[in-house]
């Protein structure tokens, strides 16, 4: 009888642990751990480099929001990212959003850099001053192997 009680309490404890891990995984994944009021903003990028829902939004290295959604605009194939930024952070209209990488091969995040305008972004404002993810492989390729067009130029030069 005593053993059954012990086994039951261990079972409940394990189940609670699994439930807590599952809850935290979902919360971190969707970025819901940002507490307090938030407001949505949109940013348009030519390349997000694999940014995903739940990625961090940083300002001066401090997490001020999360990526809520990433979708593609079929009209020009650009990526539209919806961000949720904490309400206390007011961003001038010429603020910039850049897709950065934590370390060389780390996770992608959005870095915000506030501008100088006296007007501030309101919910659902679209940030147009953006920097896409830098394609390191292609840059390294260009530096290491040069450009194929060098030869083409020589051939076509008068």
């Amino acid at each position: 009888m005593k053993n059954t009680k012990l086994e039951l309490s261990v079972g409940i404890f394990v189940l609670l642990g699994i439930a807590a891990i599952a809850y935290l995984t979902i919360q971190i994944g969707t970025g819901s751990l940002i507490t307090g009021d938030t407001y949505p903003l949109e940013a348009r990028f030519s390349n997000t480099g694999g940014l995903h829902t739940g990625s961090s939004v940083l300002l001066s290295g401090v997490t001020v929001g999360r990526v809520e959604a990433v979708r593609m605009d079929p009209s020009d194939y650009s990526a539209i990212v919806t961000l949720r930024v904490v309400s206390g952070v007011r961003l001038p209209t010429d603020s910039m959003a850049s897709v950065k990488t934590a370390g060389l091969i780390g996770d992608k995040y959005i870095s915000l850099s506030p501008g100088a305008d006296e007007n501030y972004m309101t919910p659902w404002t679209r940030i147009t001053m953006t920097e896409p993810a830098i394609d390191l492989e292609s840059l390294i390729g260009k530096m290491a192997f040069g450009s194929l067009d060098k030869d083409k130029d020589k051939k076509t030069a008068p």
């Binding site: 390349n47 910039m96 850099s113 001053m129 920097e131 840059l139």
Partner: peptide, 15 residues
């Protein structure tokens, strides 16, 4: 602004 190979002139100087 001019963005060369994904790097914005404004962002570069702003930092």
């Amino acid at each position: 602004d001019v963005v060369i190979e994904g790097v914005s002139l404004i962002a570069n100087y702003r930092t």
